[in-house]
Design a protein around this nucleic acid. Structure first.
Length: 389
RNA sequence: GGGGGGAUGUCCGAGUGGUUAAAGGAGACGGGCUGUAAACCCGUUGGCUAUGCCUACGCAGGUUCGAAUCCUGCUCCCCCCA
């Protein structure tokens, strides 16, 4: 074993959960050849978020050591739905949605990965196989083995439905490893079972089994559950800088260390919690949008939440026609909420016009008086009103 | 093939003929406070041409003055036996 290989392996493992089998990763690195490091992502939602960024960041490290990343866009497996960590069967997605997501996904992934050392593949290339080939694949595992998996075991015990299709999912993912001849496969800890199964299946197909590497799961901005689009607790890497900044400012204080560990490489975190969080928000906004945008995002945040003023740039909303307009209707139109919601917000003092709270008594207003005014909903939703032309 | 259980609002989950737009919780939103869109406290949470009206408890019918609650058919799900 060369010292470089051992050192690289140590570096790669520093913030990982585990790599199996023991020593396999170092041995692969020791071969000195360009390794094929696989990551599969199902484009069930269009955006890459910080949870993905953790794993993609790890792949980038592999690339920087001269290895090749094989990014598998699971256009085919997305139609099955990964049951990992799920308590229920996923809804089916129409193929057009999957295609669209896949494209956005690829583009966003390159904000982290080095395109020169990345091979992007869609697993529809090989998973759209003949029944005969599926038989061969299906023979490589038993039902008992598949039911070993945590989530299956739990759902089975709780008498919740598990479709045969879902049961098949891990095998399909495993077959990806065969198809691309992966040397290493990366995933979150929730992927451990699938990753390990990849080894068995590769062996069954006469290939050298991959080493696996699992990364911790990044908590979402609720600080509790995993970051995920469907739980709506995510920060997308393609979101505007002010969104990234603001969302990160609301992660609970005690979830901050996880973010620092996994996204900022365990960088030291001096200062009070607010200062730490500001730095976290700034650094990540900067990573995806550059220093200037990050600075502007922070200024905007200060303006909104420290100084309590409207931002400089406010989207416009057109007033309904007529000399007199009904405020709930204006609010509803401008922010895309129902009029009933607008009325409730009014009742709760959540609506301001040019900074002053609006009371329920003033529901019908002259359109002229509203032209150019800034309508505010809560602390952070603003629209500048314009008369209909 | 036989038997049993279930489907409730964004989600989970009460409710078995009448103050039920439907308990409770989660989430979300608003307000207060502040060190942040943290924490904590309070409130709101179907829609609307709004002191009222409309829609809603898997789907379609029916019984009744009145149904989420009873009956019939259908769809889907779960369990047990074979």
């Amino acid at each position: 074993m060369t010292r470089t290989a051992a050192r690289d392996a140590g570096f790669l493992l520093r913030n990982a959960v585990e790599s199996l089998p023991e020593g396999a990763l170092a041995a692969k690195l020791d071969t000195g050849r360009e390794l094929r490091v696989k990551l599969g992502i199902d484009p069930t939602a269009p955006d890459i978020h910080l949870g993905h960024a953790v794993v993609l960041g790890k792949l980038r490290e592999f690339q920087d050591m001269g290895n090749r990343v094989v990014l598998i866009v699971g256009d085919y497996t997305a139609r099955v739905g990964d049951p990992s960590g799920r308590s229920a069967t996923r809804p089916e997605l129409p193929p057009e949605t999957i295609d669209r997501n896949a494209e956005t996904f690829k583009a966003q992934a390159f904000s982290i990965l080095d395109p020169e050392r990345t091979e992007v593949r869609r697993n529809g290339e090989w998973l759209d196989m003949a029944m005969e080939d599926l038989f061969r694949l299906a023979r490589t595992a038993t039902v008992a083995q598949l039911l070993e998996r945590d989530d299956f075991a739990r759902r089975y015990a709780a008498r919740e439905p598990i479709s045969v299709l879902e049961l098949l999912y891990p095998l399909l993912q495993a077959y990806d490893s065969v198809a691309v001849r992966a040397d290493v496969e990366i995933g979150g800890t929730d992927q451990k079972f699938n990753l390990l199964l990849g080894r068995d299946v590769q062996e069954a197909y006469g290939l050298e089994p991959q080493a696996i590497l699992t990364m911790p799961i990044l908590p979402g901005i609720d600080g509790v559950r995993r970051m995920s689009k469907s739980l709506d607790n995510y920060v997308g890497v393609a979101e505007p800088a002010p969104e990234i900044f603001g969302k990160l400012m609301r992660v609970p204080d005690d979830a901050m260390p996880a973010y620092y560990d996994l996204l900022l490489d365990g960088e030291a975190t001096p200062g009070t919690p607010v200062e730490q969080k500001r730095r976290l928000a700034h650094r990540l906004a900067e990573r995806f949008h550059g220093a200037e945008q990050a600075g502007l995002a922070e200024e905007r945040f200060n303006r909104l939440h420290v100084e309590r003023r409207a931002p400089e740039e406010v989207d416009e909303a057109i007033l309904p026609e007529g000399a007199v307009v009904h405020l709930p209707a204006v609010i509803g139109e401008a922010f895309g909420i129902t009029r009933s919601e607008a009325r409730r917000l009014l009742a709760q003092g959540g609506v301001r016009l040019d900074g002053s709270p609006v009371t329920e008594a003033q529901l019908d207003l002259a359109a002229d008086s509203l032209d150019g005014a800034v309508l505010q909903l809560g602390k952070r939703r603003f629209r500048r009103l314009r008369r209909a032309v």
